[in-house]
Design a protein around this nucleic acid. Structure first.
Lengths: 331, 331
DNA sequence: GTGAAAGCGCTAACAG
DNA sequence: CTGTTAGCGCTTTCAC
């Protein structure tokens, strides 16, 4: 279309420079070009630019799922920064499947994106796909869920401490059979929260007559059945700390069905940013992660990596603390 | 990098064709090329391909906000189809602002995307930006929120009928001062739902002693104050139909604060797909939109437009009905 | 301050 | 079945 833009009787090069606000073009020329572009409704072809510049001006965000308030909020945070930087955001959903994640990550190669923000799937147990990306020099930043032990930047929350705090809270309000409800035995956020939970119990000289970490995985129905077995079984807990938001509905629903009173017979505490927690029946105590902030910070970090400046090694692992909000479900 | 791929001693064209699975290449050659590509960790540069093919293999999804279960679910539906088609999904958030929407839409030009799925901002009152896109021959499909009166495909729900149904339900359970709580006087989904609501009242010979449509707009705090005035004012309703999900928290919170009992003193019914509706206090009656289905159908429609086939004019305006789910808040 | 021309990585004619 | 070549729309030396 530059040919058409040459109705200004200038060269194609001049137009390109003018549109890119080059210093070697006169102000007068620039405004003439801009005016004509506007008039002819012309904008640069982004992919031709990308091809030349080897910069796509887009980032990928890879999430396990989107129907979780944590991830929605994180996207908001990411988007707010990307927009400011003039970057475009590609969204990919792994649905917690390792195979999907591998396929998605492989799409991010060959210059499609300038950087990747990822929260790994609960199934992911091997980081090769990420290492391959790194080899291509594509900056990666984990947010919330990281794969441990790699030299990749991350923005997470204080999972261990939060697990510790959660256990302490349950004990403080009188629980004798607390349990940590996890969805994965490998996912860092689960194992660290569980570990903090366990350590807190140990420090309080809690007697382990059963395993305080209960893992329920699979699809929603499967998780439902596992939790139902737990809550109707011989080792029924009197306090639960749930590791992810989607467990709320399962726990509450089963409690209603089997007429187990929260908080009288069962205290509940959950890792979640759910806006509706205060108006649930009963109001739900949460360990609220700074979701928007995590997304924002991760995006900031990614752009620093992309722009290769401010490359502060101390920035590599950022931890933003969660806060415990006590409500009716744990009183 | 094709130069490198020519360690196979074949031409660059052969490699290109092999990778694109062209019929004029022998199976043997294809597998040799694929093997080498895999080994050298090579993938096509997507933007170079886009430049040649004039196809970006990506679509844009423009949403008012993402922290709303309707939109999260819709994205899931859209993504499921896009993935199947091998398309990439760019997400943009207008935050209900018209100016943002214009800026976003203008980013979608010049071949950046092959098509656009959009749910318009509540502030949007002028369709020029969309018409400009259309002039560029970029297919557009509205989902949920459309701009009326244009020749643009849409997938929506039966807003009028749902509003009608909502009013009928409130009357049926004894409301004498029902009100429809809207967030915009121009947004189609709001006006149509409100219209259905009003018509139902008229048909039941309801006496209008006040305007049954109450509009609260602005940011969350402003909406909160407006609803508070409504619920503490002289014309306090005894039944509310709320037009969007985010009003739930406001209504419930205020009711608690001013000790207004739901459903005894106030029946509540809301347009929402909130998964947590059954476990709220009290359980919330909803008019549930088929969010996933709407997203999926809109994406399907968009791809038909993009692929220029199956171009069935009767597909232009698809309506997928919502369902009324009665729960404790309206009994 | 402006223009000519090469080339980013790929695909599609066309020739062989 | 495979190779040569032109050119997608842009940016960027390097001359002028």
């Amino acid at each position: 279309m530059k040919v058409l833009a040459k109705e200004l009787n200038v060269s194609i090069a001049t137009v390109s420079k003018a549109l890119n606000d080059s210093y070697e073009i006169s102000e007068q020329m620039k405004s003439r070009v801009r005016e004509a572009a506007l008039r002819l409704n012309y904008t640069l072809n982004p992919y031709a630019s990308s091809l030349r510049n080897k910069k796509s001006k887009t980032i990928a965000v890879i999430l396990p799922e989107i129907t979780d308030s944590f991830f929605s909020l994180a996207i908001n945070g990411i988007q707010s920064i990307a927009e400011k930087k003039g970057y475009h955001v590609l969204i990919y959903l792994s649905h917690e499947k390792f195979a999907n994640e591998i396929a998605i990550v492989s799409e991010c190669t060959s210059g499609r994106v300038d950087g990747v923000l990822i929260s790994i799937a609960s199934e992911t147990t091997n980081p090769d796909h990420l290492l391959k990306l790194q080899e291509e020099n594509i900056p990666i930043v984990f947010f919330d869920r990281e794969f441990e032990g790699l030299d990749i930047a991350s923005v997470t929350t204080n999972d261990f401490e939060s697990g510790y705090l959660a256990a302490s809270h349950l004990i403080a309000i009188g629980c004798e059979k607390p349990i940590f409800l996890s969805i994965s035995s490998s996912l860092g956020i689960c194992t660290k929260r569980a570990e903090g939970f366990k350590v807190a119990l140990q420090e309080m000289n809690f007697e382990f007559k059963y395993d305080p970490i209960f893992i329920c995985n699979g699809n929603e129905l499967e998780q439902y059945n596992q939790v139902q077995n737990l809550l109707t079984g011989i080792h029924r807990p009197d306090g639960i700390v749930a590791s992810v938001e989607k467990l709320i509905k399962i726990i509450y629903t089963i409690s209603y069905e089997i007429r187990l009173s929260i908080p009288t017979e069962l205290k509940v505490l959950i890792f979640s940013t759910l806006d509706y927690a205060p108006i649930l029946n009963p109001p739900l105590s949460t360990i609220s992660q700074p979701a928007f902030e995590i997304g924002k910070t991760a995006a900031d970090l990614l752009f620093k990596r992309i722009e290769k400046k401010d490359y502060n090694i101390s920035d590599n692992k950022i931890v933003i603390p969660s806060v415990l909000v006590k409500r009716g479900s744990s009183s």
